[in-house]
């Protein structure tokens, strides 16, 4: 159905049936920036009000994971760690991957967990996953501090670690992880909104993805001819860069980083497109 736009009168808002590919309103997100802030604050306060163990859990989780990896992959399987102490090697991977995985799992549930509020009031839906990506930073921060403690311990002990000025790009690494986690998260949330059974595949999928990423092994053990293939996984370059800056070991090449950034942007845009389409009439499918 085509209706001529009324050009004489100016309307503040025109509600149409969903049409066009992409109608994410950036100005609107800016207008709702206070909401993003308040959502972050809400999640932060409720999290700490509800569980005393909450922050502690953030500490225990990466430590246990690192220990398990150290024993299984380091001691039993004896996978190379490019010469760095296995414990700090696995910890770097776990902490960096942890941020991405949290972003991904949190944002991928956007529609399902917020169905009741989305059904009753309009606000740009994207504010919810954005706030979750930010709130996940707190978790990362705690784990990162633990990581730094261990890092300095190993440095003090004189282990073969070259902390270098690449660490300055940490914010950029985090930004890319946030964008990737957000992009893939909202992409999955758009799919799970329609096809609920995909939710069950999520945890499984995140785990598989981790093993496809050099978290428990260095990129250097991947045969040269498969490195480009590995680089198609945007997390490969992110984890390797993280380790390169803090531990000084990596076989990442500049081309891998460029591929990773391009794929991140592509996934993010696809996620946004799907999300902006689904958010319109998601309520009808609940």
């Amino acid at each position: 159905m085509k209706i001529k736009e009324n050009k004489i009168e100016s309307w503040d808002l025109v509600i149409k049936s969903k049409s066009g590919w992409f109608n994410l309103n950036l100005k609107e997100i800016y207008l709702y920036r206070d909401l993003i802030y308040l959502l972050i604050k809400r999640d932060f306060t409720t999290f700490y009000k509800q569980t005393i163990l909450g922050p502690l859990w953030y500490v225990i989780q990466p430590l246990v994971n690192t220990l398990v990896f150290t024993v299984i992959f380091g001691k039993v399987a004896q996978i190379s760690t490019d010469g760095t102490p296995p414990f700090i090697f696995y910890m770097a991977g776990t902490v960096a991957w942890g941020y991405f995985a949290t972003c991904l799992t949190l944002t991928s549930n956007t529609f399902v967990t917020n169905a009741s509020i989305f059904g009753r009031v309009y606000f740009p839906r994207i504010t919810v996953p954005i706030s979750q990506v930010v709130i996940s930073l707190f978790q990362f921060l705690i784990q990162f501090i633990i990581f730094l403690c261990f890092l300095f311990y190993f440095l003090f002990k004189g282990a073969d670690i070259q902390l270098n000025n690449l660490v300055l790009i940490l914010p950029l690494i985090l930004l890319q992880m946030a964008i990737l986690g957000l992009g893939v998260g909202i992409l999955i949330s758009s799919l799970t909104a329609k096809y609920r059974d995909l939710t069950f595949a999520m945890t499984f999928g995140v785990q598989l993805w981790m093993f496809a990423t050099p978290v428990v092994y260095p990129l250097s053990i991947v045969p040269q001819e498969y490195r480009m293939l590995a680089a198609l996984n945007p997390m490969t370059s992110i984890i390797e860069l993280f380790r390169k800056s803090f531990l000084g070991t990596s076989s990442i090449e500049i081309v891998h980083i460029i591929i990773s950034i391009i794929i991140t942007v592509i996934l993010f845009v696809i996620g946004l497109i799907l999300f902006s389409r689904i958010e319109k009439d998601f309520m009808d499918t609940v």
């Binding site: 503040d12 025109v14 509600i15 149409k16 049936s17 309009y122």
Partner: peptide, 21 residues
């Protein structure tokens, strides 16, 4: 539909001013 919780299947709504629901 007016409060944009869901979209119309077809047709158009034009609104002047800020709306709260």
């Amino acid at each position: 539909i007016l409060s944009r919780v869901t979209t119309p299947s077809s047709g158009l709504i034009k609104i002047k001013g800020r709306m709260a629901s």
